[in-house]
Design a protein around this nucleic acid. Structure first.
Length: 589
DNA sequence: GCCGTTTTCGGCCCGACTGTTTTCAGTCG
């Protein structure tokens, strides 16, 4: 555990979990709730919409729910000095290898400590060697079974460093649901957990099944032909592992109690904890079986009835994160979240028009894309190829290329769109322009006049300090033709962290100057991230949805952008391209 | 250690599964 002034949220979460584990091992009863508090603070850090260090910079650390006086003061010390005397003291005497072992599913604090102290191992790989030699099975409290479980778990941890992107998880879940419904005893099957909440990445896949024959349903589940092994199987739940080390958990419940099951396992954990705490204060106890009132269990076949019993409106799964939705559901003021059918156009598409860019070109022709957009019932789309390569062309050559593109789109509008489209009325001539490190654009200023409007985005120098990066972006947005900041954090899920920005400053600039932030619907981006969408919506910033398609089939990814928008509490009004062509032309003028 | 639609003190979510045990501890979601 390395402490330092520049700890990221992930590292801080790891640290706080280590502190929780340390307290757990000290084993004093009074520590019980302190342990939970540290675990909650770790979760809070992990889910925070901004870097904790930035919040600390702004004096807002304590505004993060779960971080109070004490933890904030320790973090303050870390950000100032690079260490915390208190945290160092708490972890003192505990072997560092322990914390590494705890990353293996099935190994918690106590198991880790026992393994490290009794086997004298110093790393995860040493544990693996010891287990292979049969040394673990000989320890008190361990046996052959737990030894082989540990080995399997280590093996799977190696393969499973990445969370799945939403479309892949959805495909897995779809196949399993189809398999479950083949069994006549299964009445219903639905996705649960982060998949049902449509989070951008999904860990384990959870599935709910309604049946009066749980044993048979679970037996059918573990016979799933594509599984690589069965992890566990009880009377109410079972887990299997798919190739690629994807874990699938299945939960069953009779149809008359299915609503409670759906609610319970859809989560999020934080939503459920907050909900149960609220219920407890009102004399009710919640579980996956229903709502207990004065010792009597009430069952619910639907989630709507479950929430109704608590005196609140049904909460859309996408916003069940305990960030205010419970209070809002109680006062019947939940947002009317944007839906796919509200979308009237796609504002980021790359065609195969040869614009001689240094980035990637699209693969489908403009006509094929327009045909696809027409099928989707869109009123308009924008072609937003990357700017022509700056190094390979002089200014005049760039202007010539952009003139050619402008003419091509004009022709498209006058002929193809007019004569062959049912719903599409206009194709916008746009461009995705690189923001240079010093804040300029990578096309000559005069070339901007050839466009209807422009997107700007960052494709280089990702590691700039927050204030310089913010300046860089704002100076690019200042060009009148520039309307949209595309994939604003430039993150790539599982590959690259996003850039650092002062969001409040960006939000303020956007609202004052009618600039828009994009929700990029490309599944490996989903950028803005949902938590930032929430902040942007609160700040009154208007957002655009674009698929960043490089092929006509990519247009259908819009649904994933909708998921992000919904998770950020965006309503129809918050999204620019829910507007009609007339309105949007005005907004982009 | 955190927090407030009973509370600034006194609470703090709920249950399943497994292995190694003989009634439970540890872990997970």
């Amino acid at each position: 555990m390395k402490l330092g002034k520049d700890m990221t949220n992930t590292q801080i979460a790891e640290l706080l979990r280590a502190i929780a584990a340390s307290y757990q091992l000290k084993g004093e009863e009074k520590n019980r709730f302190r342990i939970i508090a540290y675990q909650r603070a770790a979760d809070a850090g992990e889910h925070a919409s901004s870097e904790l260090k930035d919040l600390w910079d702004d004096g807002k650390l304590k505004e993060v729910p779960g971080i109070g006086e004490s933890i904030a003061s320790h973090l303050d010390e870390i950000f100032r000095t690079g260490t915390s005397k208190h945290f160092e003291a708490v972890m003192k005497g505990l072997p560092p290898a322990m914390f590494e072992l705890m990353e293996v599913p099935g190994i918690g604090a106590k198991t880790a400590q026992k393994l490290v102290s009794e086997l004298g191992i110093k790393s995860l790989s040493e544990l693996e060697k010891a287990a292979k030699k049969g040394k673990v099975a000989g320890l008190g409290g361990f046996g052959e079974q737990s030894q082989s479980d540990i080995l399997k778990s280590i093996e799977e941890t190696k393969g499973r460093t990445k969370r799945q992107l939403l479309p892949y998880a959805a495909a897995h879940a779809g196949a399993i649901i189809e398999w479950m419904l083949k069994n006549k005893l299964v009445k219903r099957a639905d996705p649960l957990g982060s998949l049902r909440r449509e989070a951008s990445t999904v860990g384990d896949i959870d599935i709910a099944v309604a049946t009066d024959h749980p044993v048979e349903a679970l037996a059918h589940f573990v016979k799933y032909p594509k599984k690589s092994r069965i992890l566990e199987k009880g009377d109410r739940t079972a887990s299997i592992i798919l190739p690629g080390d994807v874990q699938v958990d299945l939960m069953v419940q009779p149809p008359d109690a299915y609503g409670a099951l759906l609610q319970h396992f859809t989560g999020s954990k934080h939503h459920n904890i907050a909900l149960r705490e609220y219920a407890l204060k009102h004399g009710m106890s919640l579980s996956e079986y229903g709502i207990k009132i004065k010792g009597k269990l009430n069952k619910f076949s639907t989630e709507e009835d479950f929430y109704k019993k608590l005196g609140m409106d049904w909460v859309p799964p996408e916003i069940r994160e305990d960030t205010g939705e419970i209070e809002t559901a109680l006062t019947h003021k939940l947002p009317n979240l944007v839906e796919l059918k509200d979308i009237k156009g796609d504002l980021q598409i790359h065609s195969d028009f040869d614009i001689e860019t240094s980035h990637d070109l699209g693969e489908s022709s403009m006509q094929d894309v327009v045909k696809e957009a027409d099928k989707l019932g869109y009123e308009y789309i924008a072609f937003t190829e990357h700017n022509p390569s700056k190094s390979k062309h002089n200014e005049q050559q760039v202007i010539d290329i952009l003139k050619r593109k402008k003419e091509a789109i004009e022709k498209l509008n006058y002929s193809f769109v007019k004569n062959h489209c049912k719903s599409v009325k206009k194709v916008f001539n746009s461009l995705e322009i690189d923001i240079l490190p010093e804040g300029g654009l990578s096309i000559p200023d005069t070339a901007l006049d050839l466009l209807d409007f422009a997107l700007v985005s960052i494709h280089s120098s990702f590691r700039m300090e927050r204030n310089s990066m913010t300046k860089r972006v704002i100076s690019a947005l200042a060009y009148p033709k520039v309307k949209i900041f595309a994939h604003p954090t430039a993150r790539k899920l599982n590959e690259r962290e996003g850039i650092e920005l002062n969001w409040q400053e960006i939000f303020e600039y956007c609202t004052k100057n009618r600039k828009f932030l994009e929700i990029n619907a490309e599944p490996s981006r989903l950028d803005l991230p949902d938590s930032v969408v929430r902040e942007a919506v609160k700040a009154g910033v208007k957002l655009t949805l674009g698929t960043d398609s490089h092929h006509k089939d990519g247009l259908k990814n819009m649904i994933f952008g909708i998921s992000v928008a919904r998770r950020g509490w965006a309503e129809k009004e918050d999204i620019v391209n829910t507007r009609s062509l007339k309105e949007i032309e005005k907004m982009l003028e």
